[in-house]
């Protein structure tokens, strides 16, 4: 009964969040795009152009209404960095609009992670229980055999 109950709870929990059905990532609306200030930082003064070969390209985005600033230099491509910076900024703006708390996607992601952890724990626990049972039955069998042997010797 206990096992059944536990199993039931877990199936409910597992069904609650799926990785491919998370709430969508916050996106920058076209209106927000007009309120941005984009800067490309390449490390200040000194010679440029053909004289220097810089590999990194840092993108800095500022959302003017809120004053949120994000930076991105994860990849070598400025194009990619611009996209990533926009994703980052959209998340920060969503958090800001929601009053500083995490957004729905983050909550869901957190829950999804916890779920994963719980299921892992459950699996290892189940494994233990199973092993214990196997061991116990093996012991019982052994005892039984010994008893049988004793009885056969006595008779």
């Amino acid at each position: 009964m206990k096992a059944l109950l536990r199993c039931g709870f877990h199936t409910i929990a597992a069904r609650s969040i799926k990785k491919n059905k998370l709430p969508p990532r916050p996106k920058l609306s076209t209106q927000m795009e007009t309120e941005l200030e984009e800067k490309f930082l390449h490390g200040g003064r000194g010679p440029g152009g053909q004289k220097i070969n810089k590999c990194n390209s840092k993108v800095q985005l500022k959302h003017l209404p809120s004053g949120i600033v994000v930076e991105c230099q994860e990849t070598r491509s400025r194009d990619q960095n611009r996209k990533l910076a926009r994703e980052k900024l959209a998340l920060r703006i969503a958090q800001w609009q929601g009053g500083g708390g995490p957004v729905a996607r983050e909550v869901a992601l957190h829950e999804w992670e916890r779920q994963g952890k719980r299921s892992k724990e459950r699996k290892s626990k189940d494994k233990h229980v199973k092993h214990q049972e196997v061991r116990r039955s093996a012991e019982m069998q052994k005892l039984q055999e010994e008893e049988d042997l004793l009885r056969s010797l006595l008779t």
Partner: peptide, 10 residues
């Protein structure tokens, strides 16, 4: 061959 610069890209 010269490596393309970010200024040129820009």
């Amino acid at each position: 061959v010269l490596i393309p610069r970010w200024e040129t890209e820009e």
